[in-house]
């Protein structure tokens, strides 16, 4: 039983975390919450990749002093697979880049519509549009901070 759980536990959990993230991104009303959901969603994928790279009995992927040098062969089984780690370094950096852009957008939205709640923002956009269509006047809620 423990064997079976251990074999798949990481994968189950990554799915659970991913579901939490996806739900937050789609269903949450608050923009910052959506962004947090995005962060959770992306870390779930990182869990998946790093779990794929784990190796029983392996040590961290840095050659120990005794190995490799002076013609000693390196034992493949002794080291963890480094490739997923490299890929996930990239993914972490990408996610922090996306986070920065998303927060900047959220700040601009707040500056303009004075709210972080999706439905209120949509209401205000509608007001703006009807205002411009009926009177041709400038939007009323154009608050540039």
């Amino acid at each position: 039983m423990l064997e079976f759980i251990l074999a798949k536990y990481n994968y189950w959990i990554y799915i659970l975390i991913m579901m939490i993230g996806l739900y937050a991104m789609l269903a949450k009303n608050n923009l910052i919450k959506k962004i947090i959901g995005m962060g959770i969603f992306q870390t779930a994928i990182i869990i998946f990749y790093v779990s794929a790279g784990a190796k029983r009995g392996g040590t961290i992927p840095i050659i120990e002093h005794a190995h490799g040098a002076e013609g000693n062969a390196v034992d493949v089984l002794h080291y963890i697979n480094p490739l997923p780690h490299v890929l996930m370094l990239t993914a972490i950096v990408v996610s922090v880049g996306t986070l920065g852009v998303a927060l900047a957008l959220a700040l601009r939205i707040y500056g303009r519509y004075n709210s972080l709640e999706e439905d209120e923002i949509l209401d205000r956009i509608d007001q703006d549009e009807t205002a411009t269509e009926t009177t041709g006047a400038l939007p009323t809620t154009m608050i540039q901070s």
Binding site: G68, V74, V76, P84
Partner: peptide, 25 residues
């Protein structure tokens, strides 16, 4: 999926051994 941390999983046997053995040479 192969079991977690299985040393014989495809991910650990196909491309990555080259990196492990090749990094020093």
């Amino acid at each position: 999926f192969p079991s977690w941390a299985d040393p014989n999983s495809p991910a650990s046997t196909h491309v990555s051994p080259r990196y492990i053995t090749g990094t020093i040479p």
